[in-house]
Structures are given as C-alpha cells and as structure tokens.
C-alpha cells in the first residue's frame, strides 16, 4: 500500500513536470510543424535565470520565475524570427528547422556553460517539509510542483478555448490555409506559440532543477522524454500529450521502483517503440492537430 502511494506520488510529480514542457512542444509542432530541438537548452536557461534572479539579484521566488519565463519567452521569439521564419516557405522546413534548432540549442547550452560553469548547482526555489500519507513522506516540493503544473495546464486550456489568441492558435493548427482565410495572421500565431512554449519551458526547467539540481546539459533527457511523450500522443495533440505525460510519469516511477533508476528510460523507450509499431501515428493520433 505504502509502496503504491510512493509510486503514485512521485509518478504524478514526474508526469506533471513532463506535461508542462510537452504542452509547449506539442503546440509548436501542431502550429508550424516544427520540432524545437533547442527546447532542452531553454529548460536549462529557465532554471539558471531563476537561480540568477534569486541569488544574484535577490529577487523573491515569484519574480525569479517570472523573469525566467520572460527570458525564455523572448528566446522562443528570437528562435522564431531568426531561424523558423526565414525557412517557413522551404519544402524541407521540418528537417531544416530540426537541424537549425540543434545548432541553436548547442550554442545556448554552451553559453550557459561558459557563464555558470560545469559544476552542478542547487535550485534555490525549493520548499522544505513533507506531508505524511500513511507512512510515506511526500515532500512539499513535489506537491508544489503538482499544484503549479495543474494551475498552468488550466491556464493553457483557458487560453486555448476562451481567448481570441487561443482560437487563432487552434485554427492555425487545424488548418493553416483556412486560418489565414479567417483573417488570422499566422506569422503572429507562430511567434506567440514559440513564446508560450519558451515560457512553459522555463517553468518546467525550474521544476526539474528543483528536484535534480542545475547543470548546463540538464535539459537533454527531459527534452527527449517530452518528445517521446509527444510521439506517443501523436505529434501536436495537446490534450493527448498531457494524458500521455501523466501515464508515462506513473509508468516511469513504477519501472524505477521495480527495475532501478538506470533502466527506466530504456524500458520506457522500448515500450514507446512497441506502441509506435502498433499505431504509427501515436496512441490518440489521427494527424497533427491541436485537439480540444
């Protein structure tokens, strides 16, 4: 029983963290068929900016998070204007933007490395204490992560469903030509989506680093996991991505308990490959659309 509570508690935390960064990737892919390989570097950037704001500038936690979101949002915007926009008309856009963002990610990661050094640092944004369920300690940090993640997902759902900007994003993702014929300026939508994705990456990066510490290359594995989640859900499917993130978080936590941490990712991936052989467009996949 206690084991089950432990697995569920840590699985939900993992799933919530994955979901936040996965939503951003799914929105970007859904809108402009772009796999942003600089996402991992944005996770790290968000974590380090929060660290910098809190320790060097002496900002309170909320301001640190806000600053991280702003910086990563602007970084997303720059990626759109400097890399994606010039290539949008190209026939090989998907391949080219993939390679270009690998390059951008490498630059960003190594700049962080130059500025903050290679040694691991603890994320200052962390709450102490724990809640005891049965005989299981659930750290308050995990509960905070879960709470913030749920809140953010609600905000994203609200924006997508109830705001003019959200309707434009959904329309663009579902049919690019039709969206333009409704009077939507899709270039603006692309820019907005990359900004949102960057801001979400910042939050996700802060969450991840609050549990496992800051390293310049900390974003690599979480990014790969987020992409794997997107793939399982069917690329571009936002709600499927949230569901898949939570399921995979729980699964990872279970695998970690049964087989040990070092094999969790490998086993997870083999499961994903099996899923893809079974359903090549992802579990919930039809095509790439932002589903409501």
């Amino acid at each position: 029983m206690d084991v089950l509570v432990q697995i569920i508690a840590s699985g939900l935390t993992l799933g919530a963290m994955y979901a936040i960064s996965t939503i951003g990737l799914a929105l970007v892919y859904g809108s402009l068929n772009m796999l942003n390989m600089a996402h991992g570097a944005l996770l790290a950037l968000g974590g380090y900016v929060c660290l910098y704001a809190m320790t060097v500038l002496g900002f309170p936690a909320v301001a640190g998070v806000a600053m991280a979101m702003a910086v990563c949002g602007i970084a997303g915007l720059l990626i759109y204007h400097l890399a994606a926009r010039p290539m949008l008309a190209s026939r090989n856009f998907e391949t080219q933007i993939f390679i270009a963002t690998i390059g951008i990610g490498a630059v960003l990661e190594n700049v962080i490395l130059r500025v903050f050094g290679p040694q691991p640092v603890a994320q200052p944004l962390k709450v102490d204490g724990a809640v005891i369920i049965g005989s299981v300690y659930v750290p308050n940090q995990n509960i905070l992560i879960l709470g913030v993640a749920v809140l953010l997902m609600a905000v994203v759902a609200f924006v997508l469903n109830r705001t003019r900007m959200g309707r434009a994003i959904r329309a663009t993702a579902q049919n690019r030509d039709a969206a333009q014929l409704m009077g939507i300026r899709i270039g603006k939508v692309y820019a907005q989506v990359l900004m949102i994705s960057g801001a979400l990456a910042a939050v996700s990066g802060i969450m991840i680093s609050s549990l496992s510490g800051l390293l310049p290359n900390m974003g690599g594995d979480p990014m790969l996991k987020a992409f794997v989640i997107c793939v399982v859900a069917g690329l571009g499917n936002v709600y499927g991505a949230v569901a898949a993130a939570i399921v995979l978080g729980l699964l990872e936590s279970l695998i970690q308990y049964v087989f040990g941490v070092q094999y969790s990712f490998a086993i997870l991936l083999m499961l994903v490959i099996a899923v893809l052989i079974w359903r090549p467009a992802g579990l919930f996949g039809r095509t790439q659309v932002v589903r409501m």
Binding site: Q174, N175, G183, R185, M292
Partner: peptide, 24 residues
C-alpha cells in the same frame, strides 16, 4: 497583401474542399 489583410479588406474566400477546422 497577406491573406489576413485581404480578408480584412473584404475578400471572402470559401476554399475548395471546405478546409473546415475538424476538431471544432
């Protein structure tokens, strides 16, 4: 003009194959 600007100018284009938003 871009398509969004021609729409704003008053040109309504109902495209071939409808191009509806399938999940709306």
């Amino acid at each position: 003009l871009r398509p969004d600007e021609t729409v704003a100018a008053g040109i309504i284009h109902v495209p071939q194959g409808d191009l509806l938003f399938p999940d709306m």
